[in-house]
């Protein structure tokens, strides 16, 4: 009799255990979006010049022989309506992970079409590009400099064609020289940073009394 009640308890416990697992698997939905690139691989992609398209290259890709490129305007609809480049498709940044948009991106990736993203400046297009690139869209590229600089180039011609000139990362002046001049020959050296860091450790609880 005693043995019987115990197996009944065991049965109840096992059924509940399995039931919870079944509920878990039924309600389990795999995430819609998964990073396909690790952070390390993404970092390498950042320095890959093939991901940056200059305005002239973009024009060639759209109009010239290298057909099969799509332009995506990431600015808001208001700016888009005022004017855009080469009949670009307007997808505001907030919409880049909408279902229809992702389907579109998937199609283009299947057709291995180059997709050129641009916004007002390169920095604004960079963040959405990084997300899409990390989601695995290797056909995505960023327009160097962005809309303003591209328009300027198309109307006024190319002024400069070095690599990083449009992304705002070229120093506007010789910083060290400027400081030296202003402070009278004194070179300001950066002093090593603050050491007050508080790394996140595995959370330690106070001693737990274990065992039975």
């Amino acid at each position: 009799m005693k043995e019987l009640t115990k197996t009944r308890r065991l049965t109840i416990a096992s059924v509940i255990f399995v039931f919870i697992l079944v509920i878990g698997f039924v309600t389990f939905r795999s995430p819609d979006f998964v990073y396909k690139l690790s952070t390390k691989a993404t970092l390498e992609e950042l320095t890959n010049p093939a991901n940056i398209v200059s305005p002239v290259e973009a024009r060639e890709m759209i109009n010239g022989t290298k057909s099969g490129a799509v332009m995506i305007d990431l600015r808001n609809t208001y700016d888009y309506n005022k004017g855009t480049l080469f009949g670009a498709i307007n997808i505001p940044v907030s919409d880049i992970m909408e279902k229809e948009v992702i389907e579109m991106f998937d199609d283009w990736q299947m057709q291995s079409k180059t997709v050129i993203l641009f916004a007002e400046d390169q920095q604004a297009a960079n963040a959405p590009w990084m997300i899409l690139r990390q989601l695995g869209y290797s056909n995505m590229k960023v327009l160097s400099g962005g809309y303003a600089i591209a328009m300027d180039q198309y109307t006024n011609g190319i002024i400069d064609s070095t690599d990083y000139q449009y992304n705002g990362e070229r120093p506007v002046m010789d910083f060290a020289g400027f400081i030296q001049k202003m402070s009278g020959g004194e070179v300001v050296k950066p002093n090593p940073g603050p050491a007050q860091i508080e790394p996140i450790k595995r959370k330690k609880k106070s001693v737990t009394a274990g065992g039975c």
Binding site: T39, L46, I131, N167, G168, E198
Partner: peptide, 25 residues
């Protein structure tokens, strides 16, 4: 240095593109 609490980490570069890339990573 990057993964910590209590201190605000401010990335900067010559422009804000590279700093933003570090921020996203």
């Amino acid at each position: 240095y990057l993964n910590q609490r209590g201190v605000d980490v401010v990335f900067f570069s010559n422009g804000d593109l590279f700093a933003d890339q570090a921020w996203i990573l």
